[in-house]
Amino acid sequence: MGNRFLTAILLLTASTGTPVLAEGDPERGRELYRPCAACHMIGDGAINRIGPHLDGIVGRPAAVAMDYRYSEALIDAASEGLIWTADALDDFLADPSGYVPGLRMIFRGIHDEQDRADLVAFLREEGGTPDPVYANATAVLLAPSDEVLQIVRMEGDVYYGEYLSNECTTCHRPQGGDDIPSIAGMAPVDFIDGLVAYRSGEREHQVMQTITGRLGDEEIAALAAYFETVGQ
């Protein structure tokens, strides 16, 4: 893995801004971005949502969006020097969890080469050039909050979680959809972290805040236990 990231860095230095890949069509890319938009914001005022914001993503070092709690897998990759050059993004998008094993993001990838080029063209256009501060940023593994850890330590009742999941499946499809992210097969700590962020109001979303507003710790633990078992 180290080699590939090293190449990524070299390419970045060598090419400074000129696209390495086949020309992509950013307008087509905008369409292809739709499933991404369920989790990632990009453009003016973009903030972290379920996924980190993607401003300046093309050329940005991995795992440096401020305050975003990245998975260990991405932090590891970042510490090996992963930089999201157009080339790296292309490889990543072809097979996300093959490229970064242990990745939290649940996305099967994009097979078509032209589609990937178009999407990267869109990311470049919409995300703009990376902020210079990223060049010196280091990726750090943020610990989940105590509140989250406490729920992680509880033993979730899978069967209760299955019942509670009824409230989720009206909107979240088992295999994921284009506009609402998949939650099946998520690691419990990530699942719990997400729900707690909605429950506390830290993460914005009217529906999710209302739904989580009445979930107790026991319910969240049960849901996390259940969703870990499905979709794998």
């Binding site: 369920a38 009206t170 284009d178 805040q209």
Partner: peptide, 27 residues
């Protein structure tokens, strides 16, 4: 507990709400 969209929301929020409805329908 309840919620409702606001009159002064940004076009991005409105577009997101629409896309969410597409996801809901499929689900």
């Amino acid at each position: 507990d309840s919620f409702i969209s606001q009159v002064d929301e940004t076009p991005e929020t409105r577009a997101e709400t629409y896309r969410e409805s597409l996801g809901w329908y499929d689900a």
